[in-house]
């Protein structure tokens, strides 16, 4: 169990995109790549309408499917609780992208140290390097409404419960999204509506097949066929085994 968690309280998000840009700058991302995406939910009819903005990024699962399906062991758990990609090891096979239950792992064109164009997994790191140094992730530290807060795991869980109680009157369906099926997550959400309203599955899980794949089939296959062959055939197998999560994006 890692030490830290992030709470995204969608009832406090004003959709200002400051977290996106702060994150891009912190992580040297270009304008068209972002670890954070947004969707908005409008409920009701004029003039009785509620508007909620949802800012979404990697959840950093305890039992991360991406970690299990990666044939290169390029994805690992940091002591902070973050799920991180080692881009030196990544070969851009897209298993993580295709199997993330939340559609958060992305493989994008990157540039390696020699300046070559390469495909690499690219996702939120929960600012692991900053956190290891005792600092706050870039998104949380620029959020003036405290829609994004970061801290010790237990304190954040308590904070989420406290906020849930506070917003229940206004949002009767409010809930904390911290799916047990993936062992819990290190970015948790206070949602104003049911997860399905944001295209999130209530019962997102790490499929048993992924566990079998990671813990049994891969080691056995590598033993019998060699690592390279196993990596090549893995794409086809994993794509059939696991479903790709899809999310609509949008927002104002």
């Amino acid at each position: 169990m890692g030490q830290y968690r992030m709470l995204v309280d969608v009832t406090k998000c004003i959709g200002c995109y400051s977290c996106r840009v702060a994150c891009q700058m912190e992580n040297d991302l270009p304008p068209d790549q972002s670890y954070i995406s947004f969707c908005e939910v409008e409920k009701g009819e004029y003039p009785n309408v509620e508007w909620v903005m949802h800012r979404f990024s990697c959840l950093h699962c305890e039992d991360a499917v991406c970690e299990k399906v990666c044939p290169q062991n390029a994805i690992s758990y940091s002591q902070t609780g973050a799920v991180v990609v080692d881009q030196e090891q990544c070969i851009g096979c897209e298993y993580c992208e295709k199997n993330c239950p939340f559609g958060r792992a992305k493989v994008e064109l990157c540039q390696d140290k020699e300046g070559n164009s390469v495909s690499r997994a690219n996702k939120c790191t929960l600012c692991n390097g900053k956190v290891l140094e005792g600092m706050t992730p870039a998104c949380a530290s620029t959020c003036y409404t405290e829609a994004i807060v970061f801290g010790e795991s237990d304190e954040i869980l308590q904070k989420a419960e406290q906020r849930l109680a506070e917003v229940k009157d206004r949002y009767p369906d409010a809930n904390i999204y911290n799916p047990e099926g993936v062992g819990g997550t290190h970015t948790i959400y206070l949602l104003a509506h049911k997860p399905e309203e944001y295209d999130l599955e209530s019962d997102a899980t790490t499929p048993a097949s992924a566990i079998i794949w990671k813990d049994y089939a891969q080691p056995l296959g590598k033993l019998l066929l060699g690592a390279t062959t196993m990596a090549v055939i893995g794409g086809a197998i994993s794509n059939r085994l696991f479903n790709k999560g899809e999310h609509h994006e949008g927002g104002e």
Binding site: E26, N27, D28, L29, P30, P31, D32, Q33, V84, Q87, E88, E108, L109, C110, Q111, D112, K113, S117, V118, R120, N122, T125, C127, N128, G129, K130, L132, E133
Partner: peptide, 14 residues
Amino acid sequence: KASAATAAAVSLTS
């Protein structure tokens, strides 16, 4: 440390 982790993460699209 942070820059080393993201050194390769630079788009070719922009």
